[in-house]
């Protein structure tokens, strides 16, 4: 049994300490957003946020995560109350199959928390660890820019952005 803090809640997890976080999220906590893509840290589909930074959950054994705050895409918002980054991806229709998208969104979210006004160059550099096979890159970039605007305006009191 190990205690993990996921999306603001403490979970007692019955998994071996060497289990990668990805399988705990999917198998034990029954969350969907983090995806298995390669298990090797090469594609980014499994990305979640740990203490504010983007992390490949497929190569992060849970023994590293004691007392750390884990956030998954589910922790940002819901289908009823989507977070700015989620509204931005919906507004830009930034998906085809969408399998890589939650990972992209989590790294973008971590970037925007650190740097609310990234340049296009910075977004591209930040997303370099992530692969998309459908070719929705242009839309992903637009969505991250839109999310940045929405979050900046939300900070200024405006809810920002529409669907």
């Amino acid at each position: 049994m190990m205690s993990l803090k996921i999306n603001g809640q403490d979970h007692q997890v019955d998994a071996e300490p060497d289990t990668p976080l990805l399988y705990v999220l999917r198998d034990d906590i029954k969350l969907n957003a983090a995806k298995y893509g390669c298990g090797l840290g090469q594609c980014g589909a499994c990305t979640v946020i740990v203490d504010g930074n983007a992390v490949f959950s497929c190569v992060t054994p849970i023994l590293l995560l004691k007392d750390k705050e884990i956030t998954t895409l589910e922790g940002l918002g819901t289908i009823e109350k989507p977070a700015p980054i989620q509204r931005a991806f919906m507004a830009e229709q930034s998906a085809q199959c969408g399998y890589c998208i939650p990972g992209m969104m989590m790294r973008a979210q971590a970037l925007l928390q650190r740097n609310p006004n990234p340049t296009d160059q910075q977004i591209r550099a930040e997303l370099a660890p992530h692969l998309c096979r459908c070719g929705t890159h242009m839309r992903i970039l637009r969505a991250v820019h839109r999310a940045a605007e929405m979050m900046t305006r939300a900070d200024a009191g405006d809810q920002g952005g529409t669907l």
């Binding site: 090797l40 840290g41 090469q42 740990v50 203490d51 930074n53 983007a54 992390v55 490949f56 190569v59 992060t60 590293l64 995560l65 370099a128 660890p129």
Partner: peptide, 16 residues
């Protein structure tokens, strides 16, 4: 990873 190049990739653990 290097774009479009065969190259070894190792994930970093700075954030975890």
């Amino acid at each position: 990873a290097r774009n479009g190049e065969r190259s070894p990739i190792m994930p970093g653990f700075a954030a975890s």
